[in-house]
Nucleic acid binder design. Structure first.
Lengths: 237, 237
DNA sequence: GCGCACTACGTACGCCGTACGTAACTACGA
DNA sequence: TCGTAGTTACGTACGGCGTACGTAGTGCGC
């Protein structure tokens, strides 16, 4: 059993080691680490079964003894970096704690730019995701709302952080597979945008540009976004 | 020129028709429509250059006369369905209007389940995206904040809608490529989650389950989420 | 009316995920 | 103690992908 079949299973429920046979040469963590290393260096597209196997130093198909499908490899990766979340003793100030969580998540995603793309596809309850979730709930102990509402808060915070970082990194990640530079790409798109706005068909959009002359302060935008999310959950009083 | 070279360009700036040569057999819209049809029917993975070409009824490589890279095909698709946004005369109640926008976007993404995956990768200023954006800004005319803030509102609304729908559709879209059913997949994951919670290592997570006995009302969750986003931008007074 | 920019598209290359067959190995049941 | 069943390891092979490139046909602008 647990062999070549194709029964539904979660990779986390699969035992790392069974009784029989030669003992596995790698741990799940080794594999995840190798994949993360590749993705950090060359983008998510650099993560192929062949590359990961080579990085580990084994044959391609040997990998399938540990990871039944490529999707599961992705789950391993997400869990691995989720473990980088530093969990602390809640301070009693839930707002400050959650702001910290948001910033930490953003830092995590900037360190691993492929993460947003995987986050929106996997509805992860991996071990480290559970630890992270429990920690968030602990931080929210002082907030007097139902657990359901707390879950909604965490979900929305994650959603906002993920999408903001995804947008921030979109150009950079996109350029990775293109034969020209990030600056060229942006320049060309800005030029097109400018030409469209110049037609006068979008007066309010045009106003956006004349209004804010300087470049946007991404840091401030992010900070405001987090604040507003938390505001939405703060009981009015 | 405009031939085989690899200079940076936006597909929208590329003219649909140039002077010389035989006239193109397809319009950009035809191509986008074909790709959207395939994606709606078979998921985003069904959209390959070969399949789209076949759907159009031309050779694979002919497609490259219209679409220089696959990524551009994606942009065409996003723009095409963005055109499905129904734009109305703003009512004067910006809150109601933006709620409507949110619901419409969600409906759009449910009709085209592949959309969330593309939305988080493309920082689109396609023609229809511009029309949509201008419309949102028009709806926000009564709101007395800067255009910068209005843009942040639209961005956050889109972020929240996108991530909520993405999560809602994650299992279904994932199951598309798996040899077993959606129900089996969910059952197995719920079972694992239950086993983990049962260990007692996640007391607050456990409380979430005991608290809300019934199934979650996704509709209500979404409605609350939209409301809270808009709350965050409503001037206190 | 010549030439060039364009359309059309077949072939081919190097990737990808992974099904499958085979050989070596080890813990367990007899 | 020993056979055997369940593993690990991994080479080969298949069908699909994006797309570079070569070639042939077409019709506008000079």
């Amino acid at each position: 059993m647990a062999g070549r079949g194709a029964e539904p299973e979660v990779i986390w429920a699969r035992p790392e080691r069974t009784g029989r046979g030669p003992k596995p040469a790698y741990r799940r963590g080794d594999i995840a680490a190798a994949a993360v290393r590749l993705a950090d260096a060359g983008g998510l597209d650099a993560v192929s079964m062949r590359h990961v196997a080579a990085e580990l130093g084994c044959g391609t198909m040997s990998l399938y003894n540990y990871v039944p499908r490529k999707e599961d490899l992705y789950e391993l990766m997400v869990d691995a970096v989720s473990g980088e979340h530093e969990l602390w003793e809640p301070t009693g100030d839930w707002r400050a704690d959650m702001l910290h969580v948001g910033h930490q998540t953003r830092a995590l995603m900037r360190r691993h730019p492929w993460l947003p793309r995987l986050m929106s596809g996997i509805y992860g309850f991996s071990p480290n995701a559970l630890r992270y979730l429990e920690h968030c709930l602990a931080c929210l102990d002082p907030l007097e709302v139902s657990y359901g509402t707390k879950m909604e808060l965490v979900a929305m915070l994650n959603a906002v952080v993920t999408m903001y970082v995804a947008n921030e990194l979109a150009v950079a990640e996109r350029t990775r597979s293109l034969p020209w530079s990030e600056e060229q790409e942006t320049a060309v798109r800005i030029a097109y945008l400018g030409s469209q706005v110049a037609t006068g068909a979008y007066p309010r959009l045009a106003a956006c540009f004349t209004e804010g002359a300087g470049p946007v302060d991404l840091e401030a935008v992010f900070e405001r976004a987090l604040g507003r999310v938390l505001d939405g959950f703060t009981p009015r009083g």
